[in-house]
Computed example of a mutant assay.
Amino acid sequence: MVATVLAAILQGAVAVLALTRTADFLADGLKSYVREEDGAVILRMVGALGVLIFCMEWVVMALAFVLRYYAYIHDGAGTSAAAAKVQPEGQYAGDWQPFHV
């Protein structure tokens, strides 16, 4: 999950750079067969798509965290995990035999 977070942060940074510094990307000696106006449109579209994917990744990671936390707190029966692990003393005390001789 740490790698996913770092990748999302780097992807978001590149997307913001592509959106905000389009002219610098095109002016830094990029030799291309695409006209400068078309290159600016392409870079802005790529930046917008990168920002959209960045936001979707964070929504999915937040949802996964909430669902995992909810599963940790509540087991399938709807009781808390801490209460499910501790059994009352008298419920199975007579049935349990640690050594079978």
Rank of each mutant, 00 (worst) to 15 (best):
L52V: 09
F65V: 00
V41H: 11
A71T: 03
D38N: 15
L63C: 13
V66R: 00
A40P: 14
L43T: 11
V41I: 14
C55R: 01
Y69E: 01
G50S: 08
V60G: 09
G50C: 11
R68I: 02
M45V: 15
V51H: 12
A71V: 07
L67H: 04
L63A: 02
R68N: 01
Y70I: 00
M61G: 00
V51K: 10
M45N: 10
V59T: 05
G47E: 03
G39W: 09
E37A: 14
E57A: 08
I53F: 06
I53C: 05
C55F: 13
A40K: 10
V51D: 04
V59W: 03
A62K: 06
Y69A: 04
A64Y: 01
M61D: 01
L43M: 14
F65L: 00
A40Y: 13
M45D: 07
F65W: 02
A62I: 06
E37F: 05
G50Q: 09
A62F: 10
F65M: 00
Y69W: 06
I53H: 05
E57F: 06
V66H: 01
L52T: 15
A40Q: 06
L67Q: 03
A64L: 08
V46H: 10
V51M: 14
R44N: 15
V34L: 13
V34H: 08
D38C: 15
V59A: 05
A40M: 11
E57Q: 09
V34G: 09
V41R: 15
M45F: 08
R44M: 13
A71S: 12
M61Y: 02
